[in-house]
Design a protein around this nucleic acid. Structure first.
Lengths: 206, 206, 206, 206
DNA sequence: GATGAATGAGAATTCATTCAT
DNA sequence: CATGAATGAATTCTCATTCAT
């Protein structure tokens, strides 16, 4: 019935918030948390300074909101993949694929986040309480935990050696992150296969 | 036996510099680069603020000097290990051991360093020029390059598969770093064996 | 022996702090607490912004330090007067004289102080805790309490009616403050006599 | 009996204005002028921010309108009392009663008002010009002037000593204000009698 | 060389006010 | 009229760096 959909009206009000989040994404990714200034963000978002503080309590909360909104779809997808009814090793590869894809897209910001997750709000100088920070840390650990769970499945099925799954999952995870941070990933599917293969079969020639 | 000992004057001046570097190590490790203040450092070093600026041009140079002086012995040792006349896989494990030991001791500061190495001096606001920063990045890449070199040896000797050695060396490296950052390493020797084994032989049960 | 005394050296280091306090006195008196800006204060004190924060934690503490340092000599003098061995009514007049003198000189700032003493630090947004504020309120009440004590003496000696001394002392005090705030006081001695006379003997013609 | 009642439209528009004034009364009384925010006022008034600016030019004018509307009935009543045909001393007591009643009810806001009346519009930063402010100061002085007028009557009738009536009226006024601000007033009638008695007859035992 | 008082550029945050709907 | 999202001027406070002693 409607020949076209008005993009602006609905968008516009959300748009400001969205514009700010997008600008924040860019600036935080480029500069890190501390070197990024609210002035830079509003310049890029083409908005006023007050507007930022209408939508977010402070710089820190802006940062965390950004992280949360970006990670949620990924976390959901990963959860689903880990629950899928599928041969364990294929499932592992699928999860590696999701990780690679997500970190390929968000490498810069996540690098910043992983660094900041430690230091925030040490003192009471911050609106974001230790609990909030803790929540993010947990979210973080949860995704790695999904890897551990699947690795444990592999062990239970006598597919994998009896290694410390926590260590192994962190190892897996760190390799994924390192390759994306180094921008070594071009083809996600191929890389997922490569990474999984090395971890499962090792570097040694049989 | 020694007729004289270098007295305070010489000692003292080196001592001041050393005290500052040691305090800086502690503070930077605890707080990260931005949250660390020169005031905290001098409080811990028990020295005056001007003294810091007698020995170092600015906060950034203090930070980099710290990194350089701490990493040099490690880089030398790693270089020697990589040149050693030894079976390749044993050499690899020896190098992993060196890495683990170094990062276990310096995890906090290196975590900070790896984060800061990106953004410094982007603008002309800094005494530390892009070249300087680049030098550090190179130093960093050089150590990983030593791993790559040994992996290549392994491939040439038909011990290892023909994988991309750059990727593989970064993977190796990232796992080492992740395990130390997570404080998973208790016994360096055992961990070195474990890590090397997984990478060489994989997780799969034969 | 010394023909002249160096004014600067000793003064200079205290001078900055003193300059700031004096400028703060002027600006706070003129504008009140909120309308006064640190920028105005440093402009008048001819100093840098950071210097203010070297000597005082924040604007609030600057304000309270000002109040404390100004009121202390007065409080001491008033205490002594109230303890003096002297006929009660003369003592009362002497105290009124001290009050008038003090408020004549400090009317503006005290007006501000009396207003602000209520609202500060309601939330945890302030370095100055409720206790600190409470301390000032107490100091304030203490001086009025000295009046009450002497009025009670007068009652005990059957010189004065049995009125509520708390009410009466506040009444006394408020008249003193009102007259100074209205700048009605020219000759402190004469006014002290006038005020005391009215309170003791009333307005009625015998 | 009433054929029609002014319906919502008329009501509503006055109601909005009234709601705002009532909320403003509460917030200004609690927080003082500067710490009160328009946001708090509209939250309490349950209205939009723009609405405030439909009825009032700015925060300052809102404040002054509040003062004016609250004080008008009082000023009228006081005027009438001062014109009443009644023995002077009884008239004085009646006026004291009116003052006490008014300040008992409005202590908090008037406390704020008396503080703010000084600094407003010092610079050209404000819509409220010096004249406007001056008008309020005059209104203030006028009420005190009514006291002075009656005191002068008493003097003319040889009931009171020949004191400076301006000083005396301010003294009277300040005592009333002090007692209400200290919340010492429970029974207005009794307090009016007490205050008048002390001023007329003094504290001394005959 | 050592020191620390003085400095001011820079950053986050607040809040009265406007204006398009 | 009523609304509230958008705005930016104004303000406080921090902290690296300088420089006279």
């Amino acid at each position: 019935m409607a020949y076209y959909r008005e993009e602006q009206p609905g968008d516009d009000s959300r748009s400001k918030r969205q514009q700010i989040l997008e600008a924040a994404y860019t600036i935080f990714s480029q500069k890190g948390y501390h070197r990024a200034t609210v002035d830079e963000i509003i310049a890029l978002a083409d908005t006023g300074k007050g507007t930022v503080y209408n939508y977010f309590n402070n710089k820190e909360q802006l940062f965390y909101t950004l992280i949360r909104e970006r990670s949620q779809p990924f976390e959901t997808a990963l959860q689903q993949a880990s629950d899928a009814d599928m041969p364990t090793l294929e499932k592992l590869e699928a999860m590696v694929r999701l990780f690679l894809k997500f970190y390929k897209d968000n490498a810069s910001l996540w690098r910043v986040m992983m660094h900041e997750i430690r230091g925030f709000g040490s003192e009471g100088l911050s609106y974001v309480k230790t609990e909030t920070r803790e929540r993010y840390r947990e979210g973080f650990n949860r995704t790695i935990g999904l890897l551990a769970k699947v690795l444990q499945e592999g062990i239970d099925q006598r597919l994998l050696k009896e290694v410390n799954v926590t260590h192994a999952s962190y190892a897996f995870f760190s390799v994924i992150v390192a390759l994306t941070f180094q921008q070594f990933i071009k083809d996600v599917d191929a890389s997922a296969r490569e990474v999984t293969d090395i971890f499962i079969n090792g570097l040694a020639l049989k």
